[in-house]
Nucleic acid binder design. Structure first.
Lengths: 128, 128
DNA sequence: AGGATTATGTCGCAAAGTGTCGAAAAGTGT
DNA sequence: ACACTTTTCGACACTTTGCGACATAATCCT
C-alpha cells in the first residue's frame, strides 16, 4: 500500500458520518480504528493513531514558552478530536463539520500518511 | 527490456478498462501488479510501484506542516490513485477518465520508466 | 424519569469494479 | 498467400462498494 492517495467525493449521512473509501479501509484497519481529527485552515486533517504519535513527536520540539510555537501547538491540540471508525464509517463531530463548512458532500483527499476532509466549494478553490 | 517504449491506441471497455499492450505486460508483470496513476495537466501518468517509490523519495524532504510544501504534496497525492493490473487490464477510475477526457479510445505513450495515457485528440495536439 | 438530541448498527438497492470467455483482429513464419 | 499464434475487444455474469433509510442505543437536559 502506498498510503492515502486520491480524492473521493462522499456524502455525509443524516447523522454526520462519512463512509470511508474502501481503499482507505485496508490501510486503517490494519492499524488501529482510532483517529485524530484536527481543524486546520478551513479543512480537517485526519491522522491515523500512529501518525498522530509521529506528529506529537514533531511538536514536542516546540517550546511552549515561545509565543510562536505556542500558537502552533494550540493550532493542533485545541481543535483536535479523537474519532473512531465504526462499521466502516467515521462520525464527524458537529463542531468539526461546522469549522470545515461541511454540508452534504465531503471531499476526502489523500495525503499519504494522513488524509484531509474538505467542503467541495473550498476544495474547488484550493485545487484550482 | 528497455522500459516502456512506443505509442499504442487501445480501447476503453464498457467499464472503463484498457488492455495493457502485450509489450508492456512483460515489464509490469515481472514487477508488482500495483501501479499509481496520477492526473497531470490533461493526461494521466502511470507509475509502476517501484517508480512511484522513487517519486515519493523526491517528495519526502517537504514539510507537511508548511503551507507551501503541503500544497505541493497535495498536488501529487490528491491526484493519484492506486491501480492494479488484473487479468491483463487496468481499470481507470471514473474521476481519472474524466480528468483526462478519455472516451472510447486511449493513447498509451511509453516514457521509459513510466507511461502516459492520453485522449487521442489531446495527444494529436501535443505531438502534432 | 421523560423527551430530545446525538451516536451506532444493519440492510437493501444502485452503481462501480472484476473475471472470463469467445470472436475478431493483428502479427508471425514458411 | 496461407495457416497458425498471439493479442485485443466486447459482452455478460458476478462481486464489491457506496449510500440512503430505518431501527436501536446511548447521552444530555431540565
Amino acid at each position: 500500500m502506498n498510503g492515502f492517495l486520491g480524492t473521493y467525493s462522499v456524502s455525509l449521512d443524516d447523522k454526520g458520518r462519512i463512509n470511508v473509501p474502501a481503499k482507505f479501509k485496508g490501510l486503517l484497519e490494519q492499524d488501529i480504528p482510532q483517529l485524530v481529527m484536527c481543524v486546520m485552515d478551513g479543512f480537517l486533517i485526519v491522522f491515523p493513531q500512529r501518525e498522530w504519535g509521529a506528529n506529537e513527536e514533531r511538536l514536542s520540539h516546540l517550546n511552549p514558552s515561545e509565543k510562536e510555537d505556542r500558537n502552533k501547538l494550540r493550532e493542533f491540540y485545541a481543535r483536535a478530536t479523537e474519532c473512531e471508525i465504526k462499521s466502516g464509517k467515521i462520525l464527524i463531530p458537529a463542531a468539526q463539520r461546522e469549522a470545515a463548512g461541511l454540508k452534504n458532500e465531503v471531499m476526502i483527499v489523500g495525503m499519504s500518511k494522513t488524509f484531509e476532509l474538505w467542503a467541495p466549494d473550498r476544495w474547488e478553490k484550493e485545487s484550482g
